[in-house]
Structure formats: C-alpha cells, structure tokens
Simulated scan of single mutants.
Amino acid sequence: MTGFNWEDLMAFLTRRADDILELTRDHLVVVLISIALASAIGIGLGILVRNRRIARTTVLTAAAVAITIPSLALLALLSPILGLGWLPTVVALVFYSLLPVVRNTVVGLREVPVSVLESARGMGLGPARVLFTVQLPIAWPVIMTGIRVAAQLTVGIAAIAAYVAGPGLGEYIFKGLSSLGSKNALNYALTGTVAVIILALVLDGILVLIARLTTSRGLRA
C-alpha cells in the first residue's frame, strides 16, 4: 500500500464526493431499516418473555449465542439462500441487533418498582394499560440504551456486508483492501473507515436526542 498523502486524499474526496455521499446514504438507510425491524421484534420479544423465566432465559441465551457467530460466516450462509445485496444484509443486521434490544427491554420492564405496578393496578388499570402507560414509559430510557448499542453494532457490521454486495461504505473498505499497493488503495480504505465512524457518531447523537425527547421529564437524568 502506498504511503499517505494529504493532497492526494483531498483530490480523491473531491473527485468522488457524489459516490461517497451515495454510499453513505445507502449505509444509513440499511442501518435504519434494520434497527427499526430489530427494535420492533426485540421489544415485542422482551414484552412476551419478561415474566416467563424459562422463555426469558431461552431467548436471551439464544440471542447471546447468535451474536458470537462471525459476521462473514453468517453472510456467507445467507447469500446462497437470499442472494446478494440488501436482503441478506438486512437479515444479518437484524440478527445481530436483537440481543441488546431484547435484553434491555427485559431489564427495563423488570426494574419497574413493584409498588408502582401495585398502585397502577389499584387505580383499576388492566394489564395492557399498566404495560403501555406505566411500565414501558419507565423502562423506555433503558430500552433506548439497548437500541443505541444495537445501532453502533449495526453501523460496523453493515460495512462487512459489502462481502455479499451489500449497500454502503463497506464497498470502499473492501476495494481498498483488495487493491493493496495501488495508488488509491489507502484512500479508499481510509475514506470508508472514517465515514463509518462519523456515521456511527452522528447516528448515536440522533438517538440520544430522540431518547431525551421521548422520555418523560421526571425520568430524565
């Protein structure tokens, strides 16, 4: 790989600005789709198993084991079934995002004080109303923390999805690594890597803002 040259990098970024923006947009879109799906599935699972010890242990253990599977191996297994591109990428990202979302949903819901739940029931609220008007609002900051963790995992793993022609900035990282020694190899790899880091930081900042805006004032730190 050739040495780093700041002027060459600036010229590279100028020439390929439109391409970089398009890859960044695709990266962000696939991450947002995956996080939305993982949040819906994970929060739903957390609600279902929160009070069932065996089911809760089984789901959390399965999610913990799943996240240990190497991402390249999972993508390689999915590609013959789902093909290349967006579909295997989204499936893999949802797969890896479930653990923090499910775990934090369960933890957040189970940490709601018993006295609060008893007071809600004493006011005549049914199980569904207790869940949606008391438990979920109190657990929401913890749940959002799990979603933030899932988002950071997803942004990084999405780059690896370029292995199966997935969308996003991984294309530049893989292109740089596959052209070691060429003039722009370092520029490709560096651009893709730095853009992924910046995207992760920006997305985390947005989720922090969303968490603050959607959390009851009394629960804000």
Rank of each mutant, 00 (worst) to 15 (best):
A128I: 15
I47F: 11
A165I: 10
S115F: 14
V155M: 02
N184K: 06
T68Y: 15
L213Q: 08
L45Y: 05
G122D: 02
I173V: 11
R16K: 12
I20M: 07
G42V: 03
L153N: 05
V116Q: 11
I197W: 06
V94Q: 01
T89F: 07
G176A: 03
W86Y: 14
I54L: 07
G126V: 09
R56N: 15
D204G: 03
L32D: 14
L190R: 11
D18V: 09
A211I: 07
M1G: 15
K175T: 04
G83D: 11
G108A: 09
L28A: 03
V90Q: 06
E118L: 04
A211H: 10
V194M: 05
P127G: 08
G166R: 08
P137C: 02
V196R: 00
M144Y: 03
G3E: 14
T89W: 04
A200H: 00
E171D: 12
L99T: 09
A151N: 02
L177E: 03
L153W: 06
Q135D: 01
G124H: 09
L213P: 12
G170I: 10
I54D: 12
V114K: 11
T215I: 03
G126P: 12
G42M: 01
S71A: 13
I160N: 01
A158P: 02
L131I: 00
Y188V: 00
G146L: 02
L37T: 08
Y163P: 11
V49C: 10
F4S: 12
L153F: 11
P88Y: 12
V106E: 00
R121F: 04
I198D: 11
L77N: 09
Y163S: 10
A195F: 04
S182E: 00
L78D: 10
R212P: 12
D8K: 13
Y188Q: 03
V94L: 06
V106I: 08
L201F: 06
W86F: 14
V164S: 08
V30C: 06
L131E: 00
R212Q: 13
L9C: 07
Y96I: 09
V90M: 06
V101G: 02
W140L: 06
L203T: 01
G46D: 07
W86L: 14
L77K: 09
P167L: 09
V31P: 02
I173K: 01
L60W: 10
G181C: 05
L48A: 15
L21A: 10
T154G: 05
M123A: 07
D19M: 15
Y188E: 00
G42S: 03
A92L: 06
L75T: 03
S216C: 14
L131N: 01
G3K: 07
L78H: 08
V101T: 01
F174P: 07
S34N: 09
W86T: 12
L82M: 12
V59M: 13
R50V: 05
T145L: 02
L199G: 00
D26T: 11
L23N: 09
A55T: 14
R121P: 00
T191Q: 05
P80D: 10
A211F: 14
A66M: 08
I33P: 04
L117A: 05
E171W: 15
A165M: 10
T191W: 01
S97L: 13
A120E: 07
L37E: 02
T193M: 04
I41V: 06
R56Y: 15
L82Y: 08
L180P: 05
A162D: 01
